[in-house]
Amino acid sequence: MSNVITMGILWHLVGAASAACFYAPFKKVQRWSWETMWAVGGFVSWIVLPWLVSAILLPDVWAYYGSFSLSTLLPIFLFGAMWGIGNINYGLTMRYLGMSMGIGIAIGITLIVGTLMTPIIAGKFDVLIGTPGGRMTLLGVLVALIGVATVTRAGQLKERQMGIKAEEFNLKKGLILAVMCGIFSAGMSFAMDAAKPMHEAAAALGVDPLYIALPSYVIIMGGGAVINLGFCFIRLAKVKNLSVKADFSVAKPLLISNVLFAALGGAMWYLQFFFYAWGHASIPAQYDYMSWMLHMSFYVLCGGLVGLIMKEWKAAGRRPVGVLSVGCVVIIIAANIVGLGMAN
């Protein structure tokens, strides 16, 4: 496996670690509705940071975005909005199925859809089944799914041992939402593929290859922001006992603290895709769709490891921790199989 591919895999791991930790600052927010907290963090993640990074990277921001036709930008924006719908469904899935079952089903579906649909739509599926490297990367996807399923099983054992139940368990509703989440969340993978003309234009302007995907986030995350912020604002306007005015009427020290923690959580959410861009740039072009598989499987891996570090599994007993450990090892093996496949 080449050093470039190895670094690409490691950058995807760093991005997934940021995603697995992003909610920790949100837990420090007090006396705010979830909608206000999510909107503040999202504004930083989906609007402020993408525009700030683009302003730093590009010699002329407006000329860059003005150089693309609506027919180029609209699919990217709509795939971003698709990803945004997946974000909302992700939270609702956890509500009706619980963390372990929800994550397992949603991540498993988005891993398959986001990884395999891109080459199928592009007419490149023969690269997967017709070459040794392609077949090995397919094997890596299968092993990753086994790893995700194993970690999910560990979570179920933990929840059963600790008596944790879904907030409003509803299997039928939860499964529908999990499938929708899995499909719509893959919009980020589709958006990155559609944004290749933007990446090429950034490279032509002299932007470092590691950063060429970042300007496209203004459009991709703009689509996600419209969906997520719209959902939050509608909820705040229509749902009883929810009020932006009340949330921002807390004592000034708490208000400042809440804004800072929500902004930090949003920044960490953005950083997952910042490093995703670095990892994506280091993956061979014919296998760039594997970035999504690496990101999602590492997300599950890092989520399990973060839980262990934060002692969330302390009272779960030995068996759930043992199953979690096996699942984490399987995901690591899957990443190595994919890396070897891309090197062939």
Results as ranks from 00 to 15, higher is better:
E168Q: 14
H199I: 05
S325V: 15
M310Q: 14
S100Y: 03
G155R: 06
G307R: 02
L254F: 10
Y65N: 06
F248T: 15
G307V: 02
I88A: 06
W38Y: 15
K240M: 08
H199A: 15
I129R: 03
M117P: 02
G102A: 04
C328L: 12
G42E: 01
L138F: 09
L301M: 08
I76E: 04
V250E: 11
L324S: 05
M1Q: 13
M82E: 12
I107Q: 06
F190K: 01
C302W: 03
S249G: 14
Y211T: 06
L308G: 09
G206N: 07
A251E: 15
L177Y: 00
I146M: 13
G317I: 11
G223R: 07
I309Q: 05
P320L: 02
G41T: 01
G102T: 03
F22W: 12
S18W: 10
D193K: 15
T115N: 05
R319A: 11
A225N: 02
V326W: 02
D247P: 05
G134N: 10
K240Y: 10
I333D: 10
G140N: 09
A195G: 04
L305R: 00
F233R: 02
A335W: 00
M117V: 15
G130Q: 12
Y289D: 02
G155Q: 04
V53S: 07
G174M: 07
A262R: 01
V127R: 14
P119E: 08
H280K: 11
M180E: 08
F68K: 13
F231Y: 15
G206Y: 11
G279W: 01
G307C: 03
F233N: 03
W313E: 10
I332A: 15
P209M: 08
L70N: 11
S189H: 02
V321N: 12
F169A: 14
M99S: 11
Y299K: 11
G327N: 10
V306G: 03
S325E: 09
Q156C: 11
A39I: 08
W83L: 04
R153W: 10
L73R: 06
G230L: 09
H295L: 13
A246G: 12
F274N: 04
G123M: 04
L255P: 04
Y211I: 08
N336C: 15
F22A: 00
W32I: 09
I227P: 02
G130P: 12
I212L: 12
G341R: 02
Q286D: 14
S45I: 00
F125C: 04
L145Q: 07
I219L: 03
K165N: 13
A277K: 00
L214F: 08
A55I: 13
M117H: 05
